[in-house]
């Protein structure tokens, strides 16, 4: 197989900056889909606005580029009308949790079967490096030149509390894990959230003196640990990677189908 079988080659080279982590996520996602042996016609990719949202334009699946923060609302409509399709929603941290925060919480609460991939680069890249709800305390951004005074969300905890039945986190450094987790998230029957720590060397890296793309990926390698690792107790600042939640709960579309069936029987 070739990655090229799954992309719209006419749009390449893509518009992302050199070293942008979104490309690594696209790369891993194609490999995950390929390993599942899915046909391109079984997959719908729905995205909102932002650098990360451009991913839907590069893949040769059914795709929909919608409005800022509302990708999950559009995706819900698609899934409700065609539950047999696999819906993947790639989002940025701002798109998912600032502009689309409410949609994100309620999609998770409903447990509708779809895969939300949150590419967390901790900044708004497309609009010029403003701080996002994931930038975190003391991070520098074009709108926080003296350091951010907001505290960041924890996507994994937030998703779990909202009711997502599959929650995981990885980084663009850990590409095999990334491919495996995208695969697991797609296979999960319920709302799955995968947070991917994704480097933005152009804005976040430059403002925060985090170095170029390889250096930012080195940080992902050195400052993250597998979930449940002893190292986390010694150094609480380390970020955990892996699967945090995986549970079975009634799925929204199947429950809705049951309501229809039950009431149709009553009428006949």
């Amino acid at each position: 197989m070739s990655v090229k079988d799954y992309i719209r080659e006419r749009f390449f080279p893509h518009m992302w900056c050199p070293g942008c982590g979104h490309g690594v996520v696209l790369n891993a996602m194609i490999r995950a889909v390929e390993s599942l042996g899915m046909s391109k016609n079984e997959i719908v990719m729905v995205s909102g606005i932002g650098c990360s949202a451009r991913i839907s334009g590069y893949v040769d699946f059914h795709s929909m580029h919608t409005i800022h923060g509302r990708a999950l609302a559009f995706a819900t409509g698609i899934k409700m009308s065609r539950p047999e399709l696999n819906v993947i929603v790639p989002m940025g941290d701002g798109d998912a949790l600032a502009i689309g925060g409410n949609h994100f919480l309620h999609a998770a609460r409903r447990n509708i079967e779809m895969t939300a991939i949150v590419m967390n680069n901790r900044i708004y890249g497309m609009t010029g490096g403003q701080f996002s709800p994931l930038s975190g305390y003391a991070a520098a951004a074009s709108t926080a030149p003296y350091g951010n005074i907001d505290h960041g969300f924890d996507i994994a905890k937030l998703s779990e509390a909202a009711g997502a039945t599959f929650v995981a986190r990885t980084t663009t450094y850990h590409v095999h894990e990334l491919t495996r987790l995208i695969r697991d998230a797609i296979l999960h029957e319920g709302f799955s959230v995968l947070e991917v720590l994704t480097q933005c060397p152009t804005y976040f890296g430059r403002y925060n003196r985090a170095g170029d793309a390889p250096e930012m990926m080195e940080t992902y390698k050195n400052r993250t640990v597998a979930v449940g690792s002893e190292k986390k107790h010694q150094d609480p600042d380390l970020i955990e990677r892996g699967v945090f939640v995986k549970k079975e709960l009634p799925e929204y579309c199947r429950e809705y189908e049951k309501v229809i069936e039950k009431n149709q029987q009553k009428q006949t």
Partner: peptide
């Protein structure tokens, strides 16, 4: 093949 897997530009095979 780590170069191929990590390439953000999908440029290496």
């Amino acid at each position: 093949r780590m170069c191929e897997y990590r390439c953000p530009d999908l440029a290496i095979e």
